[in-house]
């Protein structure tokens, strides 16, 4: 079974050809790490799956992007409906300047769900899944801005989980965090993959090795290699993958 797929995808920022004929599939309940040198198109590729690239003007997409077998760029697809089913966590924690509770409840509220009992339940379960509940359960009314960076990032993960996404996109979710918070987020991702399909961009190869089942190596807009993480790290098929992993460029 396939949860998400990109098929012969080309993507352009104006004249700049940012993604070159990329085909890639993602299995349910797996973690796929996207690695590669800066500027190779990892974030661009990730953003295809919740159509966030559309916020940037003058771009063009060719090819097919599907989630749950459905082309998410179909004419009859509403973009906000798509984004409700696909969670995204950004590099820099971006909690809303609202209370912890309201941050997690946000995705439900914009969906028209305002019933207190439902919100209470979802906020609690999401914060538990994001391993933040124990730290904040006594002051859910506190501003999210008062949390530490690591807590903020886990709050953003909880916020994304609250709408029950089918797919979780993470763009360097731990790169702005200290080692202890990073370890927490990594543990969390490990837990989450039981329920969610996760695509994660990371510059940290050890991290990719620790948490992912599959790894895709991007280079200059192309997908050079995509395989089981172990295979990629121990015995890559392509020379460029080899050089990147052993740190010869990047």
């Amino acid at each position: 079974m396939i949860q998400a797929e990109a098929k012969n995808v080309n993507f352009y920022y104006g004249d700049f050809h940012a993604l070159k004929d990329i085909s890639m599939t993602f299995e349910p309940s797996s973690v796929t790490a996207l690695i590669g040198p800066s500027g190779c198109g990892k974030s661009t590729f990730l953003r295809l799956f919740n159509r966030m690239n559309e916020l940037i003007g003058n771009t063009r997409l060719e090819g097919l992007v599907t989630v749950d077998g459905k082309n998410i760029y179909d004419k009859d697809v509403q973009v906000d409906e798509i984004r409700k089913r696909i969670g995204m966590v950004f590099q820099k924690p971006n909690p809303f300047p609202k209370s912890i509770f309201e941050n997690v409840a946000y995705g439900l509220r914009v969906n028209g769900i305002n019933k207190k009992s439902i919100l209470d339940e979802v906020v609690e379960s999401s914060l538990k899944k994001a391993a933040l509940w124990e730290e904040v359960k006594d002051n859910l009314k506190k501003s999210a801005m008062a949390l530490s960076g690591g807590q903020q990032q886990r709050l953003c993960i909880a916020r994304a989980l609250a709408v029950e996404p089918h797919l979780l996109l993470m763009d360097e979710p731990a790169s702005a965090l200290d080692p202890i918070s990073t370890a927490k987020v990594e543990d969390l991702i490990f837990e989450l993959k039981k329920q969610y399909t996760i695509i994660i961009v990371t510059h940290n190869l050890q991290q990719a090795g620790r948490i992912s089942d599959y790894t895709g190596f991007f280079y200059l807009g192309s997908l050079i290699e995509h395989d089981k993480t172990q295979k990629m790290f121990l015995n890559p098929a392509d020379e460029r993958t080899q050089s990147y992993i052993t740190g010869r460029f990047g």
Binding site: N50, M52, L55, D80, E81, I82, R83, K84, R85, G87, M88, F90, K92, N94, P95, F96, P97, K98, Y106, G107, R109, V110, N111, C156, R159, A160, V163
Partner: peptide
């Protein structure tokens, strides 16, 4: 901050909801 807008849109909020609930209060 634009990251608040993208954060809200990524959660499936419409543009109008994003403006009303996140951008304007700030």
């Amino acid at each position: 901050d634009d990251s608040l807008r993208t954060g809200s849109l990524a959660l499936g909020a419409t543009k109008l909801q994003t403006i009303r609930k996140v951008v304007l209060p700030v």
